[in-house]
Design a protein around this nucleic acid. Structure first.
Length: 505
RNA sequence: GUCUUGUUAGCUCAGCUGGUAGAGCACGUCACUUUUAAUGAUGUGGCCGAUGGUUCGAAUCCAUCACAGGACACCA
C-alpha cells in the first residue's frame, strides 16, 4: 500500500541509483556555515563589485529544492531554508567530471534537501545568487511536492498534512512564528510584572471553572475517571488563598463541544490572578499588555482584520447598558425594562428563549446589536449579575458586577472580573449549578467542596482575567479560522484510520 | 445539531441536457551555459470519495454514508 504511487516508485529508484553510485541519499554530513537570510544580507554589496561577484568568499547553504530549471549545461535551483530562499547557479564545468550529467540532472529533483558550496554573484537579471562549486544531496524526498505555482490550497490537506503546508506556504510559517512570539512575549510581560508562572493539573477530579462539557479519561491504577480540565481557574485561585499574590498559567484547556472557525476541542489560554487588585487595574494592565505586544512584534497600531481596520490606539470603555443605546442604537427607554425589551425584540423578529430575566435579555440585546460593531478595542464593563456567576457584585449597585469583556474586531478577546471570594455566596452558586445539572444541564458546574474549603480560609480580594491566545493570534495575523493558527487542528479521522484501529483491537 | 457547497491524475482545475476521461504544472525522453511559474519537441499517467439504485449504458441522474469548506444554532 505504502510507496505504491508511481512517482514515489520513480524517486525510490533514483535514491537507489545514488546509493549504487556511492552517494548516501540520507547523508547527515552537513557542513552548512550560514543561512539564506544571512547570506543575502552579508553579500548585498556584490552588486557594486567588479563583474558582480567575489570569488574569494565561500559559503555553504543547505535547504530544500523548491524550483529547478535545467538549461543544458547550466541550471538554476531555488533552495529554501527556514530563513528564506536563494537561487543557486550550477554548471557542468564547475562540478566533478560526470557529476552534473549523471548524478545531478538524473537523480536530484524538486523536494530534495541539498547542500551547495560556492561564491556570491549577481546574475544578469540582477538576482543575488550562489555560484556553485560543490553540491551534495542530504535527504532524498521520495514523495513529490505539490504543484509549484498553486501549491497546496486544499484546506483538508493543509490541516491534515501541516508539514506539507509549511513546506509550500512561507506565510504559514510566518503565522506560527508570530504565534510563538506572542506566547513568549506574554510570558515575559507577566514575569516582568512580578507574576509567577505556575502549572496546575490538566486532569481534574471535578471539571470546574467554566460551563462546558469535559473529556473523560480513566486512571487505571486508581480505578477512577478523571476529566481533562476545562479551565484552570479554581486551582489558580487556590494558589491565591495559599499566599501567592500574582500567578499566571499559559496552557491548554479541553472542551468536549462543537468545532468551528473559532472553536477547537483543545485551545490555549492565559489566565492570571492578581491579589489586592480590581477589574479596573486589569483594564490598565491589558492596555499595557497590548502596547507591549505591538511594540515587540513591530506591528503597526492600525491593523487590518478582514474588511475592517482596527485602531489599537483607540481603547474605549463603555458600560454594557450604555453600549446598548450608544452603539446598538436601542432606544434608552427600552434597555432597562424587561417587557419593553421583549416587545422590541419581537418587533425586530428576533426570538429568544422564554423566561429570560432582565440581565439575560440585556445580554441578548448586546449579542444582537452591539458585539459585531465593536471594532476598535472596547472594554464592555458593568455586566448584569445574572450573566456573571463568578464575578463580584459592585458595592454601589448590586445588580451589576465588577467585570469587563474586551472586544476587538467584533470578537470577544478577554473576560475579566474582580473575583467572588465570599465562600458562602460561592457555595450557594455551586448549589444552584448542581440543581441545573440534576435538571439535565450537563454543562453546569459540580459542587467543588475543596474549593469552598479553600475560600473558607480566606482569599484576598483578587482580580482575574483570561485571554484566549488562539483568538488573539488570529487577530494579530488576520486569520479567520482558528485552524489557521493551530499547527495541528483537530480533524475527524479518515475512514481508513478507523478501520486500522478496529483491526488492532 | 441544521442548512449549503465540494470530493475527477502527485498538485491546481475543466468535463453542459447520461454514450467507457481532459488541460496546465509535475514526471519520463530529447535539445539548450544567465533563467525567474525558463523555453521548444515528445511521451507516460485515472476503480472520477464509498456503497446501493435508475438505465441498454453513470464522473454526470437518485438515495445513503464518509470527509472537508462555508453559514446558522449551541458553546466561551
Amino acid at each position: 500500500m505504502a510507496f505504491e504511487n508511481k512517482y514515489v516508485q520513480q524517486r525510490i529508484q533514483k535514491a537507489q541509483t545514488l546509493k549504487d553510485a556511492g552517494f548516501n541519499p540520507y547523508s547527515n554530513n552537513s557542513q552548512r556555515n550560514t543561512t539564506v537570510e544571512k547570506y543575502l544580507n552579508v553579500n548585498d554589496d556584490i552588486e557594486s563589485k567588479e563583474n558582480k561577484r567575489d570569488e574569494n568568499r565561500h559559503y555553504i547553504i543547505s535547504g530544500r529544492i523548491k524550483l529547478l530549471r535545467i538549461m543544458g549545461k547550466a541550471s538554476f535551483v531555488k533552495i529554501e531554508d527556514e530563513s528564506g530562499i536563494l537561487q543557486a547557479y550550477i554548471t557542468r564545468d564547475n562540478l566533478p567530471e560526470g557529476f552534473y550529467n549523471d548524478i545531478f540532472k538524473k537523480n536530484i529533483e524538486v523536494g530534495d534537501i541539498i547542500e551547495v558550496g560556492g561564491y556570491p554573484f549577481v546574475t544578469g537579471k540582477g538576482e543575488l545568487s550562489i555560484h556553485v562549486s560543490d553540491l551534495k544531496l542530504l535527504t532524498k524526498a521520495i514523495a513529490p511536492l505539490p504543484e509549484k505555482f498553486h501549491g497546496v490550497t486544499d484546506k483538508e490537506i493543509r490541516y491534515r498534512k501541516r508539514y506539507l503546508d509549511l513546506i509550500m506556504n512561507a506565510e504559514v510559517r510566518k503565522t506560527f512564528q508570530t504565534r510563538s512570539k506572542v506566547i513568549s512575549l506574554t510570558r515575559r510581560f507577566f514575569e516582568d510584572k512580578g507574576f509567577l508562572e505556575v502549572e496546575t493539573p490538566m486532569m481534574h477530579p471535578i471539571a470546574g471553572g467554566a460551563n462546558a462539557k469535559p473529556f473523560v479519561t480513566h486512571h487505571n491504577s486508581l480505578g477512577i475517571d478523571r476529566y481533562l480540565r476545562i479551565a484552570p481557574e479554581l486551582y489558580l485561585k487556590r494558589l491565591i488563598v495559599g499566599g501567592f499574590e500574582a500567578v499566571f498559567e499559559i496552557n491548554r484547556n479541553f472542551r468536549n463541544e462543537g468545532m468551528d472557525a473559532t472553536h477547537n476541542p483543545e485551545f490555549t489560554s492565559i489566565e492570571f490572578y492578581w491579589a489586592y487588585k480590581t477589574y479596573k487595574d486589569l483594564i490598565e494592565i491589558t492596555k499595557e499588555y497590548f502596547n507591549y505586544l505591538f511594540e515587540h512584534l513591530s506591528l503597526p497600531t492600525r491593523l487590518p482584520y478582514g474588511e475592517h481596520e482596527v485602531n489599537f490606539e483607540n481603547f474605549q470603555e463603555i458600560p454594557l447598558i450604555k453600549s446598548l443605546t450608544s452603539v446598538g442604537g436601542i432606544p434608552s427607554e427600552v434597555v432597562d425594562d424587561k417587557e419593553k425589551i421583549l416587545a422590541y425584540l419581537k418587533s425586530k423578529n428576533i426570538t429568544v428563549k422564554p423566561n429570560l430575566n432582565l440581565g439575560q435579555l440585556q445580554g441578548e440585546l448586546f449579542d444582537e446589536y452591539v458585539e459585531e460593531k465593536l471594532i476598535d478595542p472596547t472594554f464592555i464593563t458593568e455586566y448584569p449579575v445574572e450573566i456573571s456567576p463568578l464575578a463580584r457584585r459592585s458595592d454601589e449597585n448590586p445588580a451589576i458586577t465588577e467585570r469587563f469583556e474586551l472586544f476587538i474586531a467584533g470578537r470577544e478577546i478577554a473576560n475579566a472580573f474582580s473575583e467572588l471570594n465570599d465562600p458562602l455566596d460561592q457555595y450557594e452558586r455551586f448549589k444552584g449549578q448542581v440543581e441545573c445539572k440534576d435538571a439535565g444541564d450537563d454543562e453546569a458546574h459540580e459542587m467543588d467542596e475543596d474549593f469552598i474549603d479553600a475560600l473558607s480560609y480566606g482569599m484576598a480580594p483578587t482580580a482575574g482575567q483570561g485571554i484566549g491566545i488562539d483568538r488573539l493570534v488570529m487577530l494579530l495575523t488576520n486569520e479567520h479560522s482558528i485552524r489557521d493558527v493551530l499547527l495541528f487542528p483537530a480533524m475527524k479521522p479518515i475512514s481508513s484510520e478507523i478501520i486500522d484501529e478496529d483491526i488492532c483491537e
